[in-house]
């Protein structure tokens, strides 16, 4: 111990400098650690009030919906205001015919607007129904808008039910723009997904503390701080009014879009 003291005493100004520098670094380090700890604690105690505010804080660059690729699969593309849609910034491709043997390229599009008659080579009458089934089978989350006036036909009920939205053609400019924007927002916009989650939680009639707990677990799950099982277990313990599996599924969809 005396040797060490003598060693430092011999160094003089250098030892003072080293001591002071180390001391400053230590204080800065402690300050930062305390600050981070306090911030985390603050988030735990007063988390975001709802999923939408949480998503807003995460998502500095909202999804650019106009960059999404849209396919209009209809033998009569003149029924759509494609020039208007393209001027509005949408990325539209018109396809007048598809073969069931070669349809997978449609899955590359972010949104498909699909007619039912005269578009599938193998079945001109209701080929759109079979195509709808195959697309949804390959990718259930691929958004498809059913574009047909044949709502009166009971044999096409499945075609309409599998779709994410139904429109009739011919269709007005603003109406199709709304249909496209709403569908893209619903699937690709994190804010829209977050709003759905908030509506789900509000509709369950949870107490304030239950809702806060469920949201807290949701935030942790999205931040990958807890896994599937922990989320489901914690939510089920907090309240039985909420379907924890459905909540997890919605959180997964939200995570994908953030």
């Amino acid at each position: 111990m005396n040797l060490i003291k003598e060693f430092w005493a011999d160094l003089g100004w250098l030892s003072n400098l080293i001591t002071i520098t180390l001391g400053i670094f230590t204080i800065i380090g402690i300050y930062k650690a305390v600050k981070t700890w306090l911030k985390n604690k603050k988030n735990e105690i007063t988390p975001h009030a709802d999923m939408q505010s949480f998503v807003s804080s995460k998502n500095k660059h909202p999804a650019d919906l106009k960059s999404k690729r849209i396919a209009i699969v209809d033998d009569q593309p003149e029924n759509y205001p494609t020039a208007y849609l393209q001027r509005s910034g949408f990325n539209i491709t018109c396809i007048t015919s598809v073969s069931l043997a070669n349809y997978k390229h449609l899955l590359d599009y972010d949104l498909i607007i699909l007619d039912v008659t005269n578009i599938v080579e193998e079945d001109m009458k209701r080929g759109g129904l079979e195509l709808m089934k195959r697309i949804k089978n390959d990718n259930p989350r691929k958004p498809v808008i059913a574009a047909s006036s044949k709502s009166y036909d009971p044999t096409l009920t499945e075609y309409f039910k599998l779709s994410d939205k139904q429109i009739q053609t011919p269709i007005k400019d603003q109406k199709i723009e709304e249909a496209i924007t709403e569908t893209l927002e619903k699937i690709y916009s994190p804010k829209s997904k977050a709003r759905e989650i908030d509506e789900l939680l509000t509709g369950k009639g949870l107490r304030q503390d239950q809702k806060a707990k469920v949201l807290k677990f949701g935030f942790k799950y999205i931040d990958k701080k807890i896994g599937d099982m922990d989320l489901i277990k914690s939510c089920t313990t907090a309240t039985h009014a909420l379907d924890a599996h459905k909540y997890k599924e919605m959180l997964d969809q939200l995570s994908e879009s953030i």
Partner: peptide, 26 residues
């Protein structure tokens, strides 16, 4: 239902024309 669908097929164009008339009227 299939037989009905065959008959209702002829409904298809009048429905589209009605929609077109409505859009044009608007």
């Amino acid at each position: 239902e299939i037989s009905r669908s065959e008959v209702l097929h002829y409904f298809h164009d009048p429905v589209k024309w009605a929609n077109q008339i409505h859009i044009s009227a608007e």
